[in-house]
Amino acid sequence: MDLFQYDFMLRALVGALVIGLAAPALGIYLVQRRLALIGDGIGHVALTGVGAGLLLNRSPVLVAVIAATLGAIVIELVRSRGRTSGDLALALLFYGGIAGGVMLVGLSDAGSGKLNAYLFGSLTTTSPADLITILVLGVAILVTMLALRPALFAVCHDEEYARVSGLPVRALNLLLAVGTAVTVTIAMRAVGVLLISALMVVPVAAAQQVTRGFRATMAAAMALGLFAAGAGVWVAATADTAPGASVVLLAIGSFLVVALLAAGWRALRRRTRPVAVPVVEPPEHEVVLR
């Protein structure tokens, strides 16, 4: 039986695939700055947007994009200005976000099933309008993250150096914050706000077990994200499981497989080949730099 003959299944699959590519492309920068959990926090804020959207009878995805973007900008401003209170300010924002979301969804006529769909993802709720939002925003994220890779890499790798290079560090930081918010909200449909961070982080964590450079890590993470999202939706459809949970468990499963393979490969190489001693060549100075 072909489940994907149904339009809503096809919409869910296409949405998930776009998110599977876009989430790790952005998540790699978050992992690089050791902000792997920021997506979770922004997801909490997005839930308030969902609640507001349901209550006001507007598109929950669009209202959530706005709410999460505002939340991400506030977080970025707290980060760049604030000092010791930053931690607490973030905690207030996160818990306020999820409490506000639960309350607003409760106030609207939507039942707890609807809330669950946003918390953990749902295949049947991606409307054609939602799919267009996901496609447009997802492709925009993907293009931005790939096109600005050298600059975003520089800012995430060494922010002070980026500033002395004259890069627009504040603008790039805000772009990353807003990008995180947008990714979280569009991924809400496939994996839900409570699990979205996993799709941004786990493929990157898996890829970097075997990669040597940033570019290679990004490519491998996007491939793994695509696989986890596609296979996750297929599993959810065939086995009638929650899509978010299926996608995330597949991503974590691929992390484990990659980690085990990498460990096995290293052990095998150690046994078959003596450890190569790095040869330090004397420096040559044939180039005159001005």
């Binding site: 992992v31 690089q32 050791r34 050298p150 995430c156 790798h157 980026a162 290079s165 940033f214």
Partner: peptide, 27 residues
């Protein structure tokens, strides 16, 4: 020194290439 070591691996060439951004611009 190099920042406290980020989570994602980067090659020597990739780090050195960051030095071109001041000249080349972001886009």
């Amino acid at each position: 020194r190099l920042g406290a070591g980020s989570g994602v691996p980067a090659t020597v060439g990739e780090v050195v290439a960051s030095g071109r951004l001041a000249r080349r611009g972001v886009l």
